Amino acid sequence: MNWRLLMATWLMVFMQGVAHAAVEEAVVQLQTANGVLEGTLLVPEAKRGMPVVLLVAGSGPTDRNGNQPGLHHNALLQLSGALAQYGIASLRYDKRGVGRSMSAAPREEDLRFEQYAADVRDWVKWLAWDKRFGKVTVIGHSEGALLGMLAARQAKVANFVSIAGPGRPADQLLQMQLATQPAEIQSMALPVIERLKRGKTVEPVNPALQALFRPSVQPYLISWFKYDPAKEIAKLKMPVLVVQGTADIQVEEEDAWLLGAANQRATVVSIDGMNHIFKKSVPDRAQNWNTYTQPELPVMPELIAILAKFIRQGGKLD
């Protein structure tokens, strides 16, 4: 079932029906075989069995609030707080090797995509042990959507949400990004991508490509390239929500429709004017990127209302 942006009148009615809740915040830790991960648990004052979401951040050195060095926007922090006002608990965490989870950082050559997915799975299991919570919803942002898909099949997840999740394998996305580079760079990079896609490492690597394809990162890229988000989302048996903003300059609207078409249980929602970090913006790249360093900008209320309704109604929007 595919939806466009819900009408503003419906949004206002739904939001008016929700009372603001007192919220408890706690720092929590997850013991893993390779170090300790740390996160923040937000719990509204509600009855036993309240819904809870696990927020899975996107690519790069992203912390529990959605931030990276030089990119401070607090998107996940704001999302967590807004959901609490709907009586929905949430857990967000520093990725392995980031922030207060730094002690769990593996050597770069030992890192695999599956390790990040296992962290998501183990956090879901951790939440399942807490008797305050009922159904667990995984919300994956950007690359975190694919991680959430993999984890949702390994743990007890009631609902799955992709926000700005790519609908194509990472090697294809990388090729699309390289299409804007000079022909010389493309001619050097594309054969490397093709070989990595086949599971083969490449040495030596041209110095111009070291940042992307240095030998120590190649095993991780190989482990990432083998997953097709459309194929992975097709395997999910729980309700699925795919959300995409029309002002996203990192992931295209077509990706959302690719994901939605792959799973009959999926509902696709397009939010007009929302960019990659859930903020109101415009397609102009310069203005759009400016929002990535403005933490005072709120996440769009349309997104919060849609997520809250999907979670509170057991994976339904109608």
Results as ranks from 00 to 15, higher is better:
residue 210 Q to H: 10
residue 18 V to Q: 15
residue 231 K to Y: 01
residue 310 F to G: 04
residue 186 Q to R: 15
residue 262 A to W: 10
residue 28 V to K: 07
residue 4 R to Q: 12
residue 162 S to H: 10
residue 96 R to C: 00
residue 130 D to C: 08
residue 34 N to C: 09
residue 3 W to C: 07
residue 297 L to N: 11
residue 76 L to Q: 14
residue 248 D to F: 11
residue 202 V to S: 05
residue 40 T to G: 01
residue 277 I to M: 07
residue 203 E to N: 01
residue 313 Q to T: 01
residue 6 L to G: 04
residue 283 P to A: 06
residue 124 V to C: 11
residue 76 L to G: 05
residue 2 N to H: 13
residue 247 A to R: 12
residue 294 Q to N: 11
residue 261 A to C: 03
residue 251 V to Q: 06
residue 130 D to V: 09
residue 167 G to I: 03
residue 12 M to I: 00
residue 263 N to P: 04
residue 300 M to V: 13
residue 9 T to I: 08
residue 12 M to C: 00
residue 127 L to C: 13
residue 313 Q to P: 00
residue 295 P to H: 06
residue 83 L to F: 14
residue 207 P to K: 03
residue 188 M to P: 03
residue 69 P to V: 09
residue 190 L to A: 01
residue 291 T to H: 11
residue 115 Q to V: 04
residue 89 A to R: 12
residue 17 G to R: 02
residue 82 A to C: 05
residue 67 N to F: 03
residue 15 M to E: 06
residue 239 P to N: 09
residue 215 P to T: 10
residue 37 L to A: 00
residue 240 V to M: 10
residue 155 A to S: 14
residue 313 Q to V: 00
residue 309 K to V: 01
residue 235 K to N: 02
residue 122 D to C: 02
residue 286 A to T: 03
residue 188 M to K: 15
residue 211 A to V: 07
residue 84 A to I: 06
residue 37 L to Q: 00
residue 198 R to T: 06
residue 218 Q to H: 14
residue 104 A to G: 01
residue 166 P to D: 04
residue 263 N to A: 13
residue 209 L to Y: 15
residue 73 H to I: 02
residue 116 Y to Q: 09
residue 212 L to T: 04
residue 145 A to C: 07
residue 94 D to P: 13
residue 275 N to H: 09
residue 232 E to V: 11
residue 236 L to Y: 05
residue 247 A to D: 15
residue 183 A to I: 08
residue 177 Q to M: 10
residue 47 K to F: 02
residue 156 K to Q: 14
residue 85 Q to R: 13
residue 193 I to V: 14
residue 132 R to T: 13
residue 189 A to V: 11
residue 41 L to T: 07
residue 83 L to S: 13
residue 274 M to Y: 12
residue 249 I to K: 12
residue 70 G to S: 06
residue 189 A to T: 09
residue 247 A to Q: 11
residue 4 R to I: 02
residue 21 A to V: 07
residue 89 A to S: 05
residue 303 L to S: 12
residue 137 T to N: 00
residue 143 E to G: 07
residue 53 V to I: 10
residue 83 L to I: 12
residue 292 Y to N: 03
residue 228 D to V: 02
residue 37 L to E: 00
residue 183 A to M: 10
residue 26 A to H: 10
residue 126 W to F: 11
residue 202 V to K: 13
residue 88 I to F: 12
